[in-house]
Simulated assay, not measured.
Amino acid sequence: MIDNAQFSEMFAGAPIMAILRGMGTERSLAVATTAWDLGIDVVELPIQTPEDIEALKSVAAAARERGKIVGAGTVVTIEHVRVALTCGAAFTVSPGFDLEVVRASSESGLPPMPGVATATEVQLALSSGLTWLKAFPASLLGAPWIRAMHGPFPNAEFVTTGGMDAANAEEFLLGGARVVAIGSALEDPLQLPKLAALLKKDGPRGPEVL
């Protein structure tokens, strides 16, 4: 049975993940360092180009020195799994659900987080042993989708990705998402400080978030 319960410990510090897409090595290191300094412990680097792979290697090495966690994203082939492992990634993230890729990642010691967008995909992932799932594209699915899925699938832990930023993160967390992953919005340097401020806000929150 495949398992990805390790994400519960990875995201125990903060329900936010920074996705460093196509930033190159130098900027990826800088943004990752800022995220870590602000208390956002987990970052993901999609690996779609040779430059992305070099950036992942560098950020993963820096993460090991600080005891932080870096994952590889847009993992859609078994070869991507091999690359992620070689680069030092701690987990993989995929935009969709491919059982072969999920299995290869798990067998390599990298907890896989597949993408889901329908009840059928959620049910298939859960029946395969996976509880942590990437809801993608979250901005199109909407926070009500998270609440609706928790009805028949209360054990699903959703990480919302796609169109997330500091303005809508709280809505999704209150809606039941366990983690909000911020990607393209990080082109704005104010996003990370705003997200860090969100983590410190007082008041009621959704189950086991913030």
Rank of each mutant, 00 (worst) to 15 (best):
A18L: 12
T92D: 09
I19T: 11
A196L: 06
S184D: 12
I182V: 15
A35E: 10
A119R: 12
Q48D: 14
F91N: 05
V179W: 02
A135C: 08
L45W: 01
N4A: 08
A84L: 10
K194R: 14
T74D: 04
A14S: 11
I40C: 02
K68W: 04
L85F: 13
T120S: 15
W132A: 04
V180W: 10
L186E: 03
L29S: 08
G183A: 14
T77H: 12
A117Q: 06
I16M: 13
A125V: 05
H150D: 07
V209S: 03
A55Y: 01
G71P: 01
K201T: 15
R178H: 10
S127P: 04
D188M: 03
F91I: 08
R103D: 10
A138M: 05
A119G: 12
E157G: 03
E100C: 11
Q191Y: 06
S184F: 00
A143I: 07
V116G: 00
G206M: 13
V76M: 14
I146M: 04
A197I: 04
I47E: 00
A90Q: 11
A138E: 08
L126R: 12
I47K: 07
Q123W: 10
A72D: 02
S58T: 10
K134D: 15
G71N: 08
T120I: 13
R27P: 01
P50K: 05
N168W: 06
E121G: 12
L140V: 15
V31G: 03
L124D: 07
G71F: 02
G22V: 02
A61E: 13
D165P: 00
V75M: 03
K200S: 09
I16E: 05
N168I: 09
E26M: 00
V122C: 09
M149H: 08
E157M: 06
S108F: 14
E157S: 11
K68T: 01
Q123R: 13
M113S: 07
F158M: 09
A18N: 03
E44V: 09
L20C: 05
R205Q: 08
A125H: 03
G67P: 04
E26K: 05
V83L: 14
I182A: 03
E187Y: 04
E170F: 12
G203L: 11
S108P: 03
E51Q: 14
A30Q: 15
G22M: 04
S184P: 04
A169T: 07
L186M: 07
A30N: 14
V42M: 05
H150F: 10
A63I: 10
D202Q: 14
